[in-house]
């Protein structure tokens, strides 16, 4: 419930889009910072890279990948509706298609990022 209103697919799609958008922006800020460290403080930069390679860092990286993938897929869905308003009739179906692609593309990518945790 938001403002007493029941959350449907459309509101959920928008909420995930907004949350993933803010998360991606935060990552970009972090990325600018770590690249800055490469020149100004190489020791700290190496420590940060070690953290990225740690199990917790890899989980965060997977979450970032999920956010990027969802934002891209739902963004494409919104673009389709912007250019062809008649496609709004299929907004729910397109959202479910987004999730199918999300799972199909996301699981292999997550596996590649996470497999060093298990030594695979």
């Amino acid at each position: 419930m938001i403002n007493g209103y029941r959350i449907g697919e459309g509101m959920l799609a928008w909420l995930f889009h907004r949350i993933s958008g803010v998360a991606i922006w935060l990552f970009v800020v972090l990325h600018v910072f770590d690249i800055y460290l490469a020149g100004s403080n190489p020791g700290l930069y190496n420590d940060l890279l070690s953290f990225y390679a740690s199990p917790f860092g890899r989980v965060l990286e997977t979450t970032l990948g999920a956010g990027l993938l969802y934002h891209a897929l739902n963004g494409a869905r919104i673009i389709v509706m912007d250019f062809w308003p008649v496609m709004t009739r299929y907004s729910r179906i397109m959202w479910y298609i987004c999730w199918v692609v999300f799972v199909a593309a996301g699981i292999p990518v997550a596996w590649v990022i996470l497999k060093p945790i298990w030594g695979a």
Partner: peptide
Amino acid sequence: CRTIFNCTD
């Protein structure tokens, strides 16, 4: 408009 569809629903 953020294409949330609450209005349509």
